[in-house]
Design a protein around this nucleic acid. Structure first.
Ligand SMILES: NC(=O)c1ccc[n+]([C@@H]2O[C@H](COP(=O)([O-])OP(=O)(O)OC[C@H]3O[C@@H](n4cnc5c(N)ncnc54)[C@H](O)[C@@H]3O)[C@@H](O)[C@H]2O)c1
Ligand SMILES: NC(=O)c1ccc[n+]([C@@H]2O[C@H](COP(=O)([O-])OP(=O)(O)OC[C@H]3O[C@@H](n4cnc5c(N)ncnc54)[C@H](O)[C@@H]3O)[C@@H](O)[C@H]2O)c1
Lengths: 207, 207
DNA sequence: TATTAATCGTTACTAATTTCACGATTTGCT
DNA sequence: AGCAAATCGTGAAATTAGTAACGATTAATA
């Protein structure tokens, strides 16, 4: 059996989000063409992606919204709740702590850490902020899986090392810096400036 | 002549960032192998990417840091300064306004807009916050090229429409929603939740 | 000046991804 | 029941991306 590709997973997550919105609007059926229209993909791509999960749709009708969402979710997320640990409670970190998208049935931000003593007094959105020294211990205790780096770039490697030590298996790095980690740890860099420059040059080089 | 690929551009932007850091450390030479190590790419990939720009390196030595950076920058950014307009000055928008990475010689955040009257009094990081009603006029005046959506998802399409009307050619959408725009407008969605779920499932399905 | 070792640049190869084309299936209609 | 229309599912073709192999080039050194 062929294993699912990274790209299919990422698109499926987008489909899931779209299907959730459709369910809220009480749309109980959806065709690949409509879903393509919503998500900005193509209908063939969507059918191909979904075909990985078996024969889910019915010709002439399309897909049952709820059924499709459940199948994608069950396969990809497997009823897991993802627990996040945040490092750095500055401008960006504070926004992240307040983000309702990180307190859902799928994702829970469970721990926040900062180096500065001045940040430790507070509690934001019900989440206490702890000193970095306690991070390894606490991350293990709450079984977080994913870490977010929201510290200045010069500290990002230091934080990455702690995350690895604490057993986090995935890292999102918002600092404009490269970090090195063991091969079995996954890093996703999100550099706002590079995103801006990328989209700008895309507009320049469009054929 | 073959045109440059999107992926090469995106990696080149990463190389540029790394080269800038190397220059700060007064490293005036760099090999493809070292650059690969820093950026997490492979040496072949780097040489292949760079070969698009001509014969830049010298065998046995590697690349001159400054020369390589200049060549990449001149081709990809062409001395342009990218001007950004921000919509939504909430938790995330405020962090973005305070982000020093958006006030550099390459990128300048030049305008911010919000719907809520309560947000309009302030000025953050030297940038005034204007009512949405004035946005089309002001964006045209300051010649912004790229827009950032940091409003709630239900308002994202409304904002996208304004951006298109104002002539913005690229959009970064932080709202967890799909927006539809004309084909010549480029959209990059950055959905934090999807990034988290993506990296999590990546750790699950790693071979 | 010949030799050696390192590193680039390029061509050929392989793998992954997307697109195409079209048969198969199902429903609604007459 | 038979037919038409819509839509799915899929193998094959086309495209794109990445990897490997290796000759060419250069600087350092004996
Ligand atoms: N502000 C933004 O909108 C924005 C956007 C994109 C990227 N970023 C990046 O995200 C990171 C954070 O940005 P910010 O604006 O919140 O910065 P900030 O300076 O406001 O906050 C950084 C926080 O990290 C803490 N910190 C520093 N070293 C630490 C360590 N070793 N361990 C734990 N905490 C530590 C500091 O005490 C501070 O609270 C930076 O790398 C920045 O470049 C920020
Ligand atoms: N807070 C985060 O860390 C975070 C992370 C990822 C994504 N997001 C997304 O980014 C967006 C903003 O998040 P936030 O936490 O800053 O929300 P927020 O509620 O704090 O701020 C939203 C701001 O948008 C303004 N607004 C609403 N409608 C508008 C319109 N039509 N035009 C202009 N301004 C308008 C509101 O007045 C408010 O100031 C949301 O879509 C959210 O899902 C936020």
């Amino acid at each position: 059996m062929k294993s699912i590709s990274r790209k299919t997973i990422d698109r499926a997550l987008l489909y899931i989000r779209a299907l959730e919105n459709l369910l809220k609007e009480k749309r109980d059926k959806i065709s690949s063409l409509e879903l393509a229209d919503i998500t900005g993909s193509s209908d063939v791509q969507i059918r191909k992606d979904i075909s990985f999960f078996g024969k889910v749709g019915t010709p002439r009708i399309g897909y049952e919204t709820k059924k499709l969402k459940d199948i994608l979710e069950n396969f990809i997320l497997q009823n897991n709740v993802v627990h996040i640990a945040l490092f750095g409670v500055g401008n960006l970190g504070k926004a992240i702590l307040k983000y309702p998208g990180f307190q859902t049935d799928k994702i829970k931000l469970v721990a926040a850490f900062d180096k500065a003593k001045s940040k430790l007094l507070k509690e934001i959105n019900g989440i206490k902020i702890y000193p970095v020294e306690r991070s390894v211990e606490l991350i293990k205790k709450v079984h977080a899986e994913i870490g977010i780096i929201a510290v200045p770039p010069r500290s990002s490697q230091e934080v990455a090392d702690i995350m690895v030590k604490a057993g986090l298996k995935g890292i999102i790095n918002f600092a404009p810096s490269c970090i090195s980690v063991p091969k079995n740890t996954f890093v996703k860099n999100i550099d706002f400036s590079i995103e801006i420059l990328s989209i700008f040059s895309h507009t320049q080089f469009q054929k």
